Deep mutational scan, measured.
Amino acid sequence: GVRVRALYDYDGQEQDELSFKAGDELTKLGEEDEQGWCRGRLDSGQLGLYPANYVEAI
């Protein structure tokens, strides 16, 4: 996976979405899909989806 850092807070709206705060680091686990979602893993171990444009590569 690729380490990325959140640029903005994001509150997951669905069960399969991650929630994070600006500045949090997570691991991107795949390329974004056509809707702009990426699969990732928080350092807590939680897996889920997040909007790709909310993070930057570290």
Rank of each mutant, 00 (worst) to 15 (best):
G1R: 08
G1T: 13
G1W: 07
V2L: 10
V2R: 09
R3T: 05
R3I: 04
V4T: 01
R5P: 00
A6H: 00
A6T: 04
A6S: 04
A6P: 00
A6C: 05
L7R: 08
Y8D: 07
Y8R: 11
Y8L: 08
Y8Q: 10
D9P: 11
G12S: 12
G12W: 01
G12F: 01
Q13Y: 10
Q13L: 09
Q13C: 10
E14C: 06
E14D: 13
Q15I: 13
Q15R: 11
Q15N: 10
Q15P: 13
D16H: 07
D16W: 09
D16S: 09
L18N: 01
L18T: 01
L18V: 04
S19T: 14
S19E: 05
F20T: 02
F20H: 02
A22C: 06
E25A: 11
E25G: 07
L26R: 01
L26V: 07
L26K: 01
K28T: 13
K28D: 06
L29C: 12
G30H: 05
G30I: 04
G30E: 15
G30N: 07
E31S: 10
E32I: 09
E32H: 15
E32A: 15
D33Y: 07
D33V: 11
E34Y: 15
E34Q: 14
E34T: 09
E34D: 11
E34L: 10
Q35W: 08
G36E: 04
G36V: 04
W37S: 08
W37F: 12
C38A: 14
C38Y: 02
C38N: 02
C38E: 07
G40E: 00
G40P: 00
G40I: 01
R41F: 05
R41N: 02
D43Q: 09
D43Y: 04
G45P: 01
G45V: 00
G45T: 03
Q46A: 15
Q46V: 11
Q46G: 08
L47T: 15
L47E: 14
G48T: 00
L49N: 11
L49I: 11
L49H: 15
Y50E: 01
P51Q: 08
A52G: 14
A52P: 05
A52D: 11
A52M: 13
Y54G: 04
V55M: 09
E56R: 11
A57V: 14
A57F: 11
I58D: 03
I58V: 15
I58R: 02
